[in-house]
Each structure stands twice: as structure tokens, then as C-alpha cells.
Amino acid sequence: MLSDLSVDYYTRLEQPRGPRPSEQALTAVARGLRLTLDERDHLFRLGGYVCH
């Protein structure tokens, strides 16, 4: 609920089905899980984004 993503969409992210997640979706997940900056950067790398 904290990430404001549907359960189906979150499940597809966990099971790598569907397209690459958007930056907005990853930001929502990071916010919902209350990740630190390092954890957030790692999530973005897993999602295929380069963090600076």
C-alpha cells in the first residue's frame, strides 16, 4: 500500500514478467519499503538503470 502499486504489478516486478519497470515504479517501491539511498541505488541497478 505504501508504494501505491497494484499487487499484480508488484508481483510482475518480483517475477521478472513484463517490461522493464519505470523509474517512477522503482521510486514508489523504494519509498514504500523505506529504503536507504544505497538500497535505492541497488534497486535501480537491479531494474537496469545506472546510478551516479
Rank of each mutant, 00 (worst) to 15 (best):
V50Y: 03
H52D: 10
G18W: 12
L26V: 12
R31F: 03
R45G: 08
S3M: 09
R17K: 03
E14K: 05
M1I: 00
L33K: 04
Y10N: 11
S3D: 13
Q24D: 14
G32H: 06
E39V: 02
L37I: 02
G47A: 15
H52C: 13
V7D: 14
A30R: 06
V7F: 09
R40H: 14
V7T: 12
G18E: 12
T27C: 04
C51G: 12
G48S: 05
Q24R: 09
A30Q: 01
T11W: 10
T11R: 15
H52L: 11
A30D: 07
R31C: 03
Y9A: 05
L46I: 09
V29A: 06
L2R: 06
C51N: 04
R34Q: 11
L33R: 07
T27D: 00
L5G: 01
H42E: 15
G48A: 10
V50T: 06
E23F: 11
Q24F: 02
V50M: 01
H42P: 01
H52A: 13
L35Y: 00
S6Y: 10
L43V: 06
A30N: 03
D41T: 09
R12V: 04
V7C: 02
R12E: 13
L5I: 12
Q24I: 04
F44T: 03
L5W: 13
Y10M: 04
L13D: 05
S3A: 08
G47L: 06
Y10K: 15
E39M: 09
E23C: 09
V7H: 12
L26A: 09
T36M: 03
A28P: 02
G47R: 13
H42R: 15
